[in-house]
């Protein structure tokens, strides 16, 4: 095979690099943290992009993370709209959607409590747009008009 890269291919590589560079800011934006762990007892972890990682105070959380607590464990998280969430033992919460415009305070915040206990103090997203935060469980959808409430959910597999 001749060791010559046809000119068209070189152009292709340049285009690929260029489009990668152009796309990178968008990719970076999708990966912005949406919250931070502030308190923790016991064992707290997350499922992120197919991997299981331990979470500790100071760690960031991201959209699509699933936050998990073990027995005798709990975790408290602040989000960038000042929402505060906390989980008790044996809980599993997915952070399905989080959008927040720091200028207008428009946004949306969806989580799913698959099992366990959740305490919520809603933040600026709900203050700006009541019910723009939703908590889903296996059996219901909660529209949050503010501010403090607690939820317990089971996973339907008997406990």
């Amino acid at each position: 095979m001749p060791n010559i890269i046809p000119p068209g291919c070189r152009l292709g590589w340049k285009l690929l690099l260029l489009t990668t560079a152009l796309n990178f800011p968008l990719a970076a934006r999708a990966d912005n943290p949406i919250g931070q762990i502030k308190s923790e007892t016991g064992a707290v972890s997350a499922e992120r992009a197919g991997k299981h990682i331990d979470l500790h105070v100071g760690d960031r959380v991201f959209r699509s993370d699933v936050v998990i607590t073990a027995a005798h464990s709990s975790v408290g998280v602040t989000f960038s709209d000042n929402s505060l969430l906390a989980l008790g033992s044996f809980s599993r919460l997915s952070l399905d959607q989080f959008r927040f415009d720091t200028t207008t305070h428009d946004g949306a915040f969806d989580v799913s409590l698959h099992r366990g206990t959740l305490a919520v103090k809603s933040g600026q997203i709900v203050k700006q747009s009541p019910e723009a935060m939703r908590v889903r469980t296996r059996v219901a959808v909660l529209g949050v008009r503010g501010t403090e409430f607690v939820v317990r959910a089971d996973d339907g597999e008997g406990q």
């Binding site: 219901a140 959808v141 529209g143 403090e148 939820v151």
Partner: peptide
């Protein structure tokens, strides 16, 4: 029933709301 939601009073006495759809 293990599935439960409770609205709590805030520190300043104000009470918000949750809309339950099921």
């Amino acid at each position: 029933s293990r599935n439960l939601v409770v609205v709590l009073p805030e520190a300043d006495g104000h009470v918000g709301a949750v809309v339950v759809q099921a």
